[in-house]
């Protein structure tokens, strides 16, 4: 959606508001938070206990028959820095700082992230659920959406999230002997420890540029 259309779009989005209302009715307290960007998108955050119920309600009551994806976000920033700059990001762990959550907020380290669609209306919704950092566990979505199978395996492998009732929770991408959960923020990219990133110069300020934010030729990325 283009920003121009944002302005033209109505401030109230009836279809997306209805969706949130239906979910609130179906889940009760299970619906923790929601956010509607009129004409653009809608997010809902449900309690982890209501995760499967939310999937079923979306499928049966909101016509969201299309399963798009399922993944997760690790909101705990890496204790090793962002591995962007070997001079700054040392191998020793630092205090990662407080967690800051995105749209619809959050409470715990992990956040499940799934998206389903209604192919008839073209409406899509992003569903989130908070999971604790020490032992993330949640019901599998396979009873609601058969396609969640591989996505849950991926989330298990990448984040270490357990899906209760998943029939085949084994490695999907990585060799069986692989240790660690790569997409957790505290999983370091060791190759960067050995060799500082040469590309870091690309994002440094050019001499004399100062904090010029307007741009001269509109080209943002070649040095």
């Amino acid at each position: 959606m283009d920003p121009v259309d944002d302005v033209e779009a109505p401030a109230v989005d009836a279809a997306r508001d209805d969706l949130v209302a239906t979910l609130a009715e179906a889940l009760g307290d299970g619906l923790v938070a929601s956010e509607v960007q009129p004409g653009v998108d809608v997010w809902v955050r449900v309690a982890a206990d209501s995760w499967l119920a939310a999937g079923v309600a979306l499928r049966d009551r909101c016509g969201m028959s299309y399963f798009n994806f399922l993944s997760a976000i690790d909101w705990q920033p890496s204790p090793f820095g962002r591995d962007m700059d070997a001079q700054v990001d040392g191998p020793e762990a630092n205090d990662p700082g407080p967690m800051e959550w995105g749209t619809t907020g959050g409470e715990t380290r992990f956040q499940l992230l799934a998206r389903v669609h209604n192919p008839a209306t073209g409406l899509g919704v992003t569903v989130k659920a908070d999971l604790p950092g020490d032992r993330p566990e949640v019901d599998s979505w396979i009873p609601a959406y058969a396609g969640a199978d591989w996505h849950e395996r991926e989330a298990w492998e990448m984040f270490g999230i357990d899906f209760r009732g998943h029939p085949n929770q084994v490695h999907l991408y990585l060799p069986g002997a692989f240790e660690g959960n790569p997409l957790r923020k505290d999983y370091p990219l060791l190759a960067r420890r050995i060799k500082p990133w040469p590309g870091i110069v690309d994002v440094e300020l050019m001499p004399g540029d100062g904090d010029d934010e307007s741009g001269d030729d509109g080209e943002g990325d070649d040095a």
């Binding site: 991408y173 999983y187 190759a191």
Partner: peptide, 9 residues
């Protein structure tokens, strides 16, 4: 993918 965790360099 020089810094990837799964690629042989």
């Amino acid at each position: 993918y020089w810094d990837s965790y799964s690629v042989t360099k």
